[in-house]
Structure formats: structure tokens, C-alpha cells
Nucleic acid binder design. Structure first.
Lengths: 106, 106
DNA sequence: TTATCGTTTGGCCTTTTTACCAAATGTAAT
DNA sequence: ATTACATTTGGTAAAAAGGCCAAACGATAA
């Protein structure tokens, strides 16, 4: 891996890292159903307003979501919807793991 | 988010987290071309043997790769190849980010 | 203007992650 | 049995991530 390659993989990893948190993953999936304002998320998660805001800014920084301030509220939406395709595969990994576990039990 | 949902998202996040590191991401892509032994990775990355081994064990723990000890060497291979599909989307995010950047320049 | 609402930012502390070293393990060759 | 090789494990120190509080901000309402 040369320097340029390293930077490329760091950039890719950053995108994945942004999604690699339960709360952020959940948020991303919620946004698949359309935009949401920060306050909606705060209600549904049991977390501080500032915590939710910071999670959203991680997603934004990674380029996964974008924000739109309208009036007093800020609405977030998915910028690159394909991230949800990840989920099918992630679920396949989980199923595979479950199968492996089950096999060990026998 | 109830407790069960929380656990589900934690499990999914763990899979993503495993891939969310430049070195591990690179390794996963390398494995797309077929199995590799640990020593091969050590040569190509400028990192300690133990570091490489630990990264691989993170991938293994997540259920993304599996290992096969043959003789003195341990060979790793992709267990769930679909993880590579992630990459197309991740690249799309990066392209989208580049476009956003470019737009700002004008 | 002042007050209020929705959100972000800064600071601080705790937890997790990362990476190296050294020591332990297991396999194969001598 | 001893040695050498490939890998893993344990320990530890440094860096990054997570989450809460309080303070700052910007837009609207009074």
C-alpha cells in the first residue's frame, strides 16, 4: 500500500465508520423514509439533544446526509441512498454468523 | 428504539465497524482475489505482525472472514463476499463528496 | 427588544480503539 | 528434544470516539 492508496482507504473507511454506530445506523435507515428534523430523532432516541446533533454531523461530514435549515428546525435527509444497500449484506453476515453458531451447538 | 431493536442495530454496527478501518478494508478487498496468509499481509503493509493478526481477528470476530490453519501458516478468506458490494456505494459517496467540493469552488 | 425554541459548539470525562513490544503457542524441520 | 518459523495473546501507552452538561447561536414570536 503506497501513500495514495492509504489515503483512499482512509477516505472509504471514514464513510463506513460514520455508519458504524448503532444510533447513526438507525438514523440513516429512518431517513430512508424521508427527511426528519433533529427534534424528531431526539424524541425517539433516549439521548441528549447535543448527542443527536453530533451524530448527525458525523453523517454529514462523511457525505451521507445533508441538512436543510427551515425556520427554527433543521431537516436532515439521505444524500446518497445507496448506503441502505449495505444493510442487506450486513444482514447476510448476521445470518451467516447465526448459522455458524447453530452449527457449533450440534 | 426498544431494547431488542437496539441490540439489532448494535450487531449490524459491529459488522460495519469491523470494515471501518483502512487496513481492514484493504485486507477485505485483497481477499476478494482469494485467500491470503497472514505473512503475505504483513509484507505488504508496513505494520507489526501482531497488528495484522489483530486486525484479522476483528474481521473474523465480525463473521466477515474465516481462517484455515494449514501447516505453519494461517490462511484467511472472505466468508461473506457481498461485503465488497459496499465498496461501490462507498465510492459513490466519495464521488458525491468530490462533486460537492467542486461545486463550492465555483 | 426581549424571550423562546431548535440546534450546534466547547469542554470535560469515560470508554474504546489502535499499535507496538515481549512473551506464549503450535507446528514442522533438524 | 531442540530449534526455527508463523501466528496469537497480553500488556501498556497514546489517540480517537462517545455522551453529557452548559453556554452560544440563529430564527421566530411576543
Amino acid at each position: 500500500m503506497n501513500k495514495k492508496e492509504k489515503e483512499m482507504y482512509s477516505a472509504k473507511a471514514k464513510v463506513l465508520k460514520a455508519l458504524a454506530h448503532p444510533t447513526r445506523l438507525w438514523m440513516a435507515e429512518q431517513l430512508a423514509g424521508g427527511e426528519r428534523c433533529v427534534c424528531e430523532f431526539v424524541e425517539e432516541i433516549d439521548a441528549d439533544f447535543s448527542t443527536v446533533s453530533k451524530h448527525l454531523s458525523v453523517l454529514k461530514e462523511a457525505g451521507i446526509v445533508e441538512d436543510d435549515k427551515r425556520g427554527k428546525q433543521v431537516f436532515y435527509s439521505l444524500k446518497v441512498p445507496c448506503v441502505l444497500n449495505f444493510m442487506h449484506c450486513v444482514e447476510e453476515v448476521l445470518r451467516s454468523n447465526a448459522a455458524t453458531q447453530a452449527a457449533l451447538m450440534e
